[in-house]
Nucleic acid binder design. Structure first.
Lengths: 110, 110
DNA sequence: CATACATTTCTATAAATGTAGAACTATTAA
DNA sequence: TTAATAGTTCTACATTTATAGAAATGTATG
């Protein structure tokens, strides 16, 4: 990953709305649910509409949110896949781990 | 630190030139030197001119580099202090640690 | 098929960003 | 004090970005 790719990721997080979307997704994409049989399964992420309500506080999905989601997806920070009429969003944990490394482990000393 | 402050930090890293400056500083601000008496002391960071040579490959300091350094400093990612005619640059390790946390530990599960 | 629903793409626009060069400031040296 | 060096700030300009609304797309439903 070169400097330009890294810049794309950071630029994607370089907007307050996108930080809020990112943190919202991170907060609700991790927990696992326990089913009736006691089995553990990942909770399905929110739809674009749900993100819109929670983050933008609006019922109506704006083209603006679509734009921000595209930036985040383009940076591989989030995932999106169609489920019927909706798009289900999630966090890309691999990219997150890469960023933790970038600021943590990859720091030669200190 | 609210969403806007975080966005300022990420936006500061959201440019390829600034990523290169940041990584250059990180690579040369951490090592410690061993003095004649065997004492360990931090190596002094590079001047703006030295960053210019290494990162921009130019002898002449550009206003552009000044601008980028201001962005990084504004985000508390780097430090600068005058030493005679020069400005000595360094990395803000606290901010780095905060970012490692942000992507690592603060992630509730997974 | 027609209609509603969820979301994206297109178009226009205002604001922010990055770059270059000139002028300016601070510090040292002659 | 004058000149040189190291950097910053100012000004102008082209590019990019964020937002809003309208039109288009894909999917389910009557």
């Amino acid at each position: 990953m070169d400097h330009k790719d890294k810049a794309v990721i950071f630029k994607a997080l370089g907007d307050p709305t996108r930080v809020r979307v990112f943190e919202f997704l991170r907060s609700c994409c991790c927990p696992v649910a326990v089913g009736e049989e006691g089995e553990v399964r990942p909770v399905e992420g929110p739809t674009v509409g749900e993100i819109c309500c929670s983050v933008m506080g609006s019922e109506k999905i704006s083209s603006s949110l679509s734009f921000h989601l595209k930036e985040l997806r383009n940076a591989d920070l989030i995932t999106m896949e169609r489920r019927g009429k909706n798009m289900i969003c999630g966090i890309n944990h691999e990219t997150l781990a890469g960023l933790a490394d970038y600021f943590g482990k990859s720091n030669p000393c200190c």
